[in-house]
Structures are given as structure tokens and as C-alpha cells.
């Protein structure tokens, strides 16, 4: 039952974050890159204020999968290692936490570029 509830929460919170994004797009016509950066920064700042971590605890993937979760993970990692190693930690911690995701994106990007070709769109 708990597992099922987590799915519902992930769906609702994740959908809700995307819904906010869509409302912003509808009214401001921001481009893809800008929307991604906006949510990333929002997630990072909320993590800095200690709010986003609670949301991740509550909704699991609903909060960690959106790009704001990426921002929050960067900040979380940076703060954590800053506490251990000071300024050196602040510089290394963020990317170290997110290295997995970024590496997978780069490697699979390369792989796809080798394997596939872009297609002309029908619509």
C-alpha cells in the first residue's frame, strides 16, 4: 500500500511541476533551454532554503525526476561536501553527485549519434 501511495504522490507532484512549467510557457512563450534553466535554478534555490529536500522525501521521483530535482541534487551535494572539505568541497561536491546522470546523458548521446540518423518530420 505504501508503495502504491508513493506512485500516486510521484505522479501528482511530478505532473504538478510540469503543469506549472506549462502554465509559464503558455503565458511567456519561453523557449526550451530557458524553461530548463529556470526550473533548475528554482530547484537549486529551494534546496538551498531546505525546502526541496522535504519534497523529495515526500514525493520521491515526483520531485527528483523533474530538472528542478537535478538542481537540488547539485546543491545538496555541494553543501554536503562543503561541510566536510570547505571551499574545496563546495567546488567538487555538486558535479560529483550528478556525475552519473550527466555521464549517462553524454555517453548515450554519443551512442545514439553513432547508431541513428535524424528523421524528417511528418508533422
Amino acid at each position: 500500500m505504501d508503495t502504491f501511495l508513493m506512485f500516486v504522490k510521484a505522479f501528482l507532484v511530478g505532473g504538478g511541476i510540469c503543469l506549472i512549467g506549462q502554465i509559464i510557457i503558455n503565458f511567456t512563450h519561453l523557449t526550451n533551454g530557458k524553461i530548463l534553466v529556470l526550473f533548475l535554478i528554482a530547484g537549486a534555490i529551494l534546496e538551498g532554503l531546505g525546502v526541496y529536500g522535504k519534497l523529495v522525501e515526500f514525493a520521491g521521483a515526483g520531485a527528483s525526476v523533474p530538472i528542478s530535482g537535478f538542481g537540488s541534487a547539485l546543491v545538496k551535494g555541494a553543501i554536503k561536501s562543503a561541510k566536510q572539505d570547505g571551499v574545496y568541497g563546495a567546488l567538487t561536491g555538486g558535479l560529483a553527485t550528478c556525475a552519473t546522470g550527466v555521464s549517462i546523458a553524454i555517453v548515450s548521446g554519443y551512442l545514439v549519434a553513432v547508431l541513428f540518423r535524424p528523421r524528417t518530420k511528418k508533422k
Binding site: 501528482l12 510540469c18 506549462q22 523533474p66
Partner: peptide, 16 residues
């Protein structure tokens, strides 16, 4: 907005 909510939610649920 409906589609954004639905697809966004589904992707997060798969993540879960």
C-alpha cells in the same frame, strides 16, 4: 496543461 500534467506525471511515476 492537461497533457503536460499527464505525461509529466507518468514519467515521474515510471521513475518511481
Amino acid at each position: 496543461m492537461f497533457w503536460a500534467f499527464l505525461i509529466g506525471g507518468i514519467i515521474c511515476a515510471i521513475g518511481q
